[in-house]
Design a binder for these strands. Sequence first.
DNA 1: TCACATTTTAGATTTGTTATAAAATACTAT
DNA 2: ATAGTATTTTATAACAAATCTAAAATGTGA
Lengths: 178, 178
Amino acid sequence: MIQGDYEEIADMLRSHGLQVTSQRILIYDYLVHTNKHPSAQQVFEDVFESLPGISKATVYNTLETLSTHGLIQKINPQSGVTRYDGNTSVHSHLICTECHRIIDYFDDALFSMQVPETLWTGFEIKRTCVIFYGVCEECRNKMEDRGDKKGAKATRQVMPLKRNQRKVDAWLTMKVKE
Amino acid sequence: MIQGDYEEIADMLRSHGLQVTSQRILIYDYLVHTNKHPSAQQVFEDVFESLPGISKATVYNTLETLSTHGLIQKINPQSGVTRYDGNTSVHSHLICTECHRIIDYFDDALFSMQVPETLWTGFEIKRTCVIFYGVCEECRNKMEDRGDKKGAKATRQVMPLKRNQRKVDAWLTMKVKE
DNA sequence: TCACATTTTAGATTTGTTATAAAATACTAT
DNA sequence: ATAGTATTTTATAACAAATCTAAAATGTGA
């Protein structure tokens, strides 16, 4: 399924000093036109449809190359593998901790809070990454259907302390090599 | 090296419905008192000093358990392995893309920009994660010493387009299974 | 079209992390 | 205290994402 303007993609690759290959064009085009924030495996499977025989190593190479040149974005969720986003405009991500879907979230105000380019620490910021973890609407509905209290997972279960607890310091000191 | 108040840690574990074990106490205590945002491997090595024989599986189990209960924080950099932070107060991280060090960055203003708990998308936010990628002062100095232009890596190298480029669409169409 | 540099490829390898099942330990009730 | 039960720890195996390798293929500039 050819969907993109390959001449444009080719020019963009050249303008970054990258050689133009069918693999790069198709992977980039795929990433720009999907909103599923795929993993390398998913990219491999989907691009394989249009370019049978493409190697998984190439997919990894290409994703790394495009990412290094700022043409795509890496997303590293707290659980699961690296995902990729062909949309490099300033936006943040909502990551559902239930179904692991990643949703684009555009809110300019969020990024208007400017951090000084060079902080007091002498740290020079190149890129800002904002991720919101939570539960998507679909999963919240599923949880309700199952009888889970909405957002139960987030409500910290604080249990009452038991009486007469052992003195931990002394107990632990025995176990620990000083 | 015993440094913390183990009774307090024990109570905290109990209050979350977790059993009190020496492994959990020492790992938590270690994470709270270090600022190096260690990997699981580093936690293993350092805690091994005070509790020889501790298993790596336990370190992974414990880190996962503490993290699930919100007692510690997972950090997933764009390159490299998962790191852990015993400081759960609201703050963001500066990650140096050169030396991979992680620096705590406290800026309340940054998190005062409130996102509605439930967005228009129906997504319920549980936790916000802000990461700044860039180059730390030390690495910037090293780069300068090496003659690299400061921040050269970030400056996008845009090359002039070449004339007489092949028509990519036609070329690619031949390679692609429609 | 030729020559050279870059990229792709298949497969092996590495490595962070998870799964397993038995032994050890913590906790509760007696 | 002690015994019984559930949880946790442990060593090891298993897994899978990602990287490395060297040869083949391809892109690019002359």
